[in-house]
């Protein structure tokens, strides 16, 4: 038996088009069994493409996928009963009612009718189950999609940007649902480009950019020693001198508008002392928690930079050769 709910090795996919567009570029993903796993990346980084490959909707060009140890797509039919998924947006027949849509899916996998009633009740859709899918609000469509995934009583749930377009109440509801599903012992993979929401519920995350894995691990691990920084506000003319003092003391300093951010597990009192010794007095001083958001922006930004740098280098060698 495998330790991972999902693992991919060297997964690769490019779309044919006017130009070949590499969507997933050698991705090694590990999703542990149990808990909520955030699958993060900016727009166009290849999250949806990866999820489609996991579900056998598109074929990888190269690489290996395993779901609960089963090789995909070759043995996907053996494991699909344990996997519920919503890709991009809920997709059902618009002119059939919610109940009819679920009943069709249930009968396709030989699930009995009472289960349909059960999942409708579970997702709070019983009242509107007789209405056409086209008349549902986005939140209700999303709930119907979740109801559909629950028809199978899956061990692994894959949600691709499930909160897209929802209002705060809807977002909260989906989050609660995902947490509850994970607490029931299922594995939840949730993709998103909005990190704040994943940060709150994810136990582990993988961050991708340009189809490659940039970082993965628990939220705490990724935020790492950036978890706490000290934010200092000084008089504008003293900013530069203060930065010099703190850097000289071996601290990492970033400027953030009118303030300085001092990284590392620093005690605000230490920073205060260092500055005061040089006759610099802070107007404001305090510890701030760095969110996954800023780490994410930093990481994905670095990934972009790395890419351009690589391109520059290639360009350089080209000139040398010529």
């Amino acid at each position: 038996m495998s330790d991972y709910a999902i693992s991919t090795d060297g997964l690769r996919k490019s779309y044919r088009g006017v130009r070949r567009r590499v969507a997933v570029d050698g991705l090694d993903l590990r999703v542990p069994v149990g808990g909520v796993h955030g699958f993060l990346g900016p727009n166009g980084s290849g999250k949806t493409t990866t999820i489609r490959m996991l579900l056998g909707l598109i074929r990888p060009d190269d690489g290996e996928i395993r779901i609960f140890g089963h090789e995909v797509p070759a043995t996907l039919p053996d494991v699909i009963a344990r996997v519920g998924a919503i890709v991009e947006s809920p997709k059902f027949f618009p002119n059939f009612t919610g109940r009819q849509n679920l009943e069709l899916l249930a009968s396709a996998i030989g699930t009995k009718r009472p289960r349909v009633r059960q999942v409708l009740a579970e997702t709070g859709l019983s009242d509107r189950a007789g209405d056409r899918f086209a008349t549902y609000s986005l939140g209700m469509k999303q709930r119907l999609a979740i109801a559909a995934t629950l028809l199978k009583e899956p061990d692994l749930l894959i949600f691709d940007e499930p909160t897209n377009g929802l209002d705060p109440a809807g977002i909260h509801e989906i989050r609660t649902t995902m947490r509850r599903l994970a607490d029931e012992g299922r594995t939840v993979l949730v993709s998103s480009h909005i990190l704040a929401e994943v940060e709150q519920i994810a136990d582990t995350v993988s961050i991708i950019g340009r189809g490659r894995l940039i970082a993965s691990g628990s939220v705490a691990e990724i935020i790492g020693d950036r978890a706490e920084s000290v934010r200092v506000v000084l008089r504008p003319e003293e900013g530069e001198r203060a930065e010099g003092v703190l850097t000289a003391a071996g601290l990492t300093v970033r400027s953030d508008h009118e303030a300085l951010l001092v990284d590392g597990a620093t005690d605000p009192a230490d920073v205060n002392r260092l500055l005061a010794e040089q006759g610099l007095y802070a107007r404001e001083l305090g510890g701030v928690r760095v969110g996954l958001e800023s780490v994410f922006l930093e990481l994905t930004h670095d990934a972009e930079l790395g890419r351009t740098r690589r391109r520059d280098r290639r360009h350089g060698t080209g000139e040398e050769a010529a």
């Binding site: 579900l55 056998g56 909707l57 797509p73 996907l76 039919p77 699909i80 996997v83 519920g84 998924a85 890709v87 947006s89 997709k91 059902f92 027949f93 618009p94 849509n101 899916l105 396709a108 996998i109 559909a148 028809l151 199978k152």
Partner: peptide
């Protein structure tokens, strides 16, 4: 056009 084919294939990938 409705995408229901993709939904069905996540239930029956054969």
């Amino acid at each position: 056009s409705s995408g229901a084919m993709a939904t069905l294939l996540t239930f029956q990938p054969r």
